[in-house]
Measured scan of single mutants.
Amino acid sequence: HAATELTPEQAAALKPYDRIVITGRFNAIGDAVSAVSRRADEEGAASFYVVDTSEFGNSGNWRVVADVYKA
């Protein structure tokens, strides 16, 4: 099962156990969220919340930071 994305309210009520950072070329924010979901799932997380997204220069590469939560 894939890790689910939390709302800001849900994330605020929970304590993350880790923070992950992924970088890559994403065509849309949805693609980045899917990549975070896969990584969170690999780490055994039940859910995640994207904290920050930023573009690296003009290369089209993105850096996505997310907190991950157990259950």
Rank of each mutant, 00 (worst) to 15 (best):
A71M: 13
L14C: 10
R63H: 08
S47P: 02
V50K: 01
A13N: 12
E5V: 06
F48E: 01
N58R: 08
I29A: 09
P8V: 10
N61G: 10
D41K: 15
S37Q: 15
Y49I: 07
A3I: 11
R19F: 04
E42N: 06
V51N: 02
H1E: 06
F26H: 02
A35W: 07
E43W: 13
A66W: 05
W62P: 00
K70W: 08
V65H: 01
A11E: 01
F26S: 00
P16K: 02
N61V: 15
A45K: 01
G60S: 05
N27P: 08
F26N: 01
E9W: 10
I29N: 04
N27A: 12
S47H: 15
Y17S: 04
A32I: 12
V50H: 00
A35E: 12
W62V: 06
Y49T: 03
E42Q: 12
G60H: 06
E9G: 08
A66G: 01
V65R: 02
I22Y: 01
T23R: 06
A32D: 02
A45P: 02
R63F: 08
H1T: 10
V21W: 05
Y69Q: 00
A40I: 05
E43K: 10
F48R: 00
F26C: 07
D31E: 13
S34P: 02
F56Y: 13
A35Y: 09
Y17K: 01
P16Y: 04
S37T: 07
D67C: 09
R19P: 00
I29M: 12
S54L: 12
A46Y: 12
A71S: 11
A45I: 04
A45V: 02
A12V: 08
P16N: 03
E9C: 13
A66F: 15
S54Y: 15
P8D: 08
A12M: 11
G24C: 07
D41N: 14
T53Y: 15
I22W: 02
R38Q: 13
Q10N: 04
T4H: 14
W62F: 11
A13D: 10
V51M: 02
V68P: 02
V65M: 04
S37K: 15
I22P: 00
T23P: 00
E43V: 15
R39M: 08
T4G: 06
Y49P: 01
D52E: 15
N61Y: 15
S47G: 10
F56D: 14
H1W: 10
D41E: 14
G44W: 04
K15Y: 07
S34K: 14
A71K: 10
G24F: 09
H1F: 11
A13H: 12
E9K: 08
E43F: 14
K15N: 08
D18A: 15
V65W: 04
G30S: 14
